[in-house]
Amino acid sequence: MADATANTPAVGIGPGPRGAKPRNAFAPRNIMLYGTLIIVAIYYALPLYVMIVTSLKGMPEIRMGNIFAPPLEVTFEPWVKAWSTACTGINCDGLSRGFWNSVWILVPSVVVSITIASVTGYALANWKFKGSEFFFAVLLIGAFIPYQVMLYPIVLVLKNLGDGISFFTVALGLGKVQVYGTLWGLVIVHTIFGMPILTLLFRNYFASLPEELFKAGRVDGAGFWGIFFRIMLPMSLPIFVVAMILQVTGIWNDFLFGVIYTKPEIYPMTVQLNNIVNSVQGIKEYNVNMAATLLTGLVPLIVYFVSGKLFVRGIAAGAVKG
């Protein structure tokens, strides 16, 4: 009986009053609910708050006071110092170097990885051939292999790739080329490890577009690339934005690949940050450390707060089957 009435929402429930019960904003239930959520929100927001507050204090105030207290005297000196003069080892040119390194790593990695993954996803969705689904399945399984298993052999692959390219460049008189330890080595690694999730994202998106569009393109004589550039690309701006969000935050936050596949001169920001904060020499300047930490977190935070719902969509799309 209950099921029958529940399944027909148009019919009210019995003769009594209809619609939701008017809610009392201060019912004990609501106080509990909002109270819990506010406490949770404070807990999650606290570290960001502590970072900001600490980075705006002077060292004497930090030694005297309470880490949760707002600064009595606001100073931007720690920010300036973290950006331009903080030391890692013998280099004292601050985090700015790491920042620009990260930018130089980020731009080509995002462009290359998204370009390759979008074409791959399109081919997998619309131009299947015998075996393509099999490779895709292995690609998805590969996403779960711990990176540590593949790290060392990839070093060898990159070295050999460099030697292979050098074979041609030396023959052409252009000198030797290195891939391992350079920016492009890292770009290749980011492209490889971004591939499973991005390909899945693009494949599912292209597969969800109406097939008639594809067929119409075929009838009009468009081929693989014609359909991709003239029909698919103009329709897929949202998914490209989602992919960019995923890759920008993912590559910016990377630490492991940066440590292994680059050299100290081109270490990304996360690696340099860790070296600055966890260096054992010198007096610890906590305000500078927190300013540096905040600076490193700034790019993904801006991406997160600006993109809002798209960020959630990105991770959900990535997570659902990733």
């Binding site: 959520l37 949770v40 929100a41 999650y44 927001a45 606290l46 570290p47 960001l48 502590v50 970072m51 600490t54 930090i62 030694r63 880490i67 935050t249 910016w252 936050n253 990377d254 630490f255 996360t270 940050l273 860790n274 904060v277 906590y286 450390n289 927190m290 930490t293 490193t296 977190g297 993904p300 935070l301 991406v303 997160y304 707060f305 809002g308 960020f311 959630v312 991770i315």
Partner: peptide, 30 residues
């Protein structure tokens, strides 16, 4: 608003996360 606050740490790297909590759990200041 609540969702935004609870999810933002996920945008941060583990390095940033680790360093912030190292600071908050610091016995002399935290």
């Amino acid at each position: 608003t609540f969702r935004t606050i609870i999810l933002y740490p996920f945008a941060l790297s583990f390095i940033v996360t680790g360093l912030v909590w190292q600071w908050i759990l610091n016995p002399d200041f935290g």
